[in-house]
């Protein structure tokens, strides 16, 4: 339920804030790739290779048509993502095993936002289509490793009994950033303007913040609901 509502809210924010930027970036990307393919034809004797900074969809692959179909699949993807995060959050509450007040729920959600959106974004900020980047597998591994280590770090800081454990939680949090995110080999920049990319990063973080607030509020509320009659006062307590 929390995932469904959060996914729908994220979808509305996505359509109004992010989709125009993605569409604009794709226009830049198409123009840039058509230019580079023209260059390839002209410079074929010089063995020029197409830059790996662009992804061009093969015409034979299925992809949703622009408009309602594309938006529909985006909505489904947002709902599934929000449900996935909600499940992880409720699982955390269940293992915690005690009452989760609104404030505690928001704290858990804040840790979720930092672990899944902000800290991976420090190394690998949200990208517009066509941006220059490193190998996909390296980036995916770094992203997952950062999310996992961030969760472990926050758990150690929040529930570590000894100071040493809390301190090691801080170390675990910073490890992936000391190790460093994979960087692109190419020194070229993507076809979109840096202004557009910067706006996209900020807006996607804003959308993530809203998603995590909705998810943490609703999951804490529904988690407390079956516990007793006075759940509302227990939910609102500090």
């Amino acid at each position: 339920m929390a995932g469904l509502v959060a996914g729908c809210i994220v979808f509305v924010l996505h359509l109004t804030l992010l989709q125009p930027l993605i569409t604009q970036a794709e226009i830049f990307e198409k123009v840039s790739s058509s230019k580079s393919s023209e260059n390839m034809v002209q410079d074929s004797s010089q063995n020029s290779s197409k830059p790996d900074t662009h992804h061009v969809h093969d015409g034979s692959e299925w992809s949703p048509h622009d408009g309602i179909e594309r938006s529909f699949y985006t909505l489904i993807a947002h709902i599934i993502t929000a449900i996935a995060y909600s499940l992880l959050l409720v699982a955390g509450f269940a293992i915690y095993g005690r009452d989760v007040s609104l404030l505690q729920g928001l704290l858990w959600g804040g840790a979720g936002f930092l672990s899944f959106s902000f800290l991976p974004g420090l190394g690998l900020p949200a990208e517009l289509p066509g941006a220059t980047r490193a190998d996909l597998m390296d980036r995916q591994l770094w992203w997952l490793m950062t999310a996992f280590l961030s969760i472990v770090g926050f758990l150690l800081i929040a529930f570590g009994k000894a100071n040493l454990l809390r301190f090691s939680g801080g170390i675990v949090l910073t490890l992936p950033h000391i190790f460093g995110a994979p960087v692109a080999n190419s020194t070229m920049s993507g076809p979109s303007s840096p202004e557009l990319a910067a706006k996209f990063v900020m807006l996607s973080l804003f959308v993530s913040v809203i998603m995590w607030i909705v998810i943490s509020f609703m999951t804490a509320f529904f988690y407390m609901r079956p516990i007793g009659n006075n759940y509302f006062s227990r939910f609102l307590r500090r």
């Binding site: 994220v10 996505h14 992010l18 989709q19 993605i22 992804h55 969809h57 692959e61 299925w62 992809s63 949703p64 594309r70 699949y73 985006t74 489904i76 993807a77 947002h78 599934i80 993502t81 449900i83 996935a84 995060y85 499940l87 992880l88 959106s117 991976p120 974004g121 690998l124 900020p125 949200a126 990208e127 517009l128 289509p129 980047r133 996909l136 980036r139 995916q140 992203w143 997952l144 996209f200 996607s204 959308v207 993530s208």
Partner: peptide, 29 residues
């Protein structure tokens, strides 16, 4: 679910979830 939406390599899933992957800062392409 998270790996499916954000990380699965299958073209079908990638193309369907493409815009959401960019929005959630999942590494894409």
């Amino acid at each position: 679910l998270l790996l499916g939406v954000g990380f699965a390599d299958a073209h079908l899933i990638h193309n369907a979830a493409h815009d959401a992957r960019h929005a959630h800062s999942f590494p894409c392409h």
